[in-house]
Design a protein around this nucleic acid. Structure first.
Length: 204
DNA sequence: TCATTAATCGAAG
DNA sequence: CTTCGATTAATGA
């Protein structure tokens, strides 16, 4: 099941609807949990994460998105508040379009609207897969689930092993495990040749 | 080189 | 599995 994993509207087209360029520095917050959702965001350059924190202050990362991917749209349709933070992992260039203009764009362009549906379905599909994997008490299975998710979500050529561009801390925050557990489990998985590790980099 | 951040390890709970 | 303490490697100013 290979679908275009994400929304990527032509930038000139976005500008014609009044979209604007925005630049953020590493660590900057694009929006916070509880903010009103007002924009559709499309990443031109850089990486962002969507997260929130539990009562003990532990971070849980919901997703990490990169160039040509969009975010913030789902809440636009709900007319509601963001349920997570969007924080820059690197310097980021973004195009943002006000929700009113975004909805107008969708109304006037059925094809893009359909693509939007496909994009949201895709996310829903993988969220459910992740939910299943992440509910396993076995850390190796959680990690494998994450890797499998990343592979299908990002990768285009699935033959070669994929370089996982995540720190161990990020993998831990994506799976709800501790860094040390991630490190030890990853090593175990390497001996079982489920993954490869070269210079601390993980390949799956 | 100093400081900061990420990756590791071992031991204990 | 998680927490703690401590060390080591990597990166940037």
């Amino acid at each position: 099941m290979k679908v275009t994993s994400c929304m990527n509207i032509d930038s000139e087209f976005l500008y014609s609807y009044g979209a604007e360029d925005r630049h953020y520095k590493t660590g900057e917050i694009i929006y916070r949990e509880g903010d009103h959702a007002v924009y559709y965001y499309q990443i031109v350059q850089g990486k962002i994460k969507q997260n929130n924190y539990d009562a003990e202050g532990r971070e849980f990362i919901h997703n990490i998105l990169r160039e040509n991917q969009s975010f913030g749209e789902s809440m636009i349709f709900l007319e509601d508040l963001h349920m997570m933070n969007a924080i820059c992992l690197t310097p980021v260039d973004i195009i943002r379009l006000h929700k009113d203009s975004f909805l107008q764009l969708l109304e006037e362009n059925p094809k893009i609207s359909l693509q939007m549906n496909a994009c949201l379905s895709q996310r829903l599909y993988f969220k459910s897969i992740m939910l299943q994997n992440m509910s396993s008490p076995n850390p190796a299975l959680r990690l494998e689930g994450l890797l499998e998710y990343l592979k299908s979500y990002h990768d285009v050529n699935c033959n070669d092993s994929l370089h996982i561009e995540l720190t161990r801390q990020q993998m831990a925050n994506l799976t709800g495990l501790r860094v040390e557990t991630v490190i030890r489990t990853l090593k175990k998985m390497e001996t079982q040749s489920k993954i490869k590790i070269k210079n601390r980099k993980v390949y799956y």
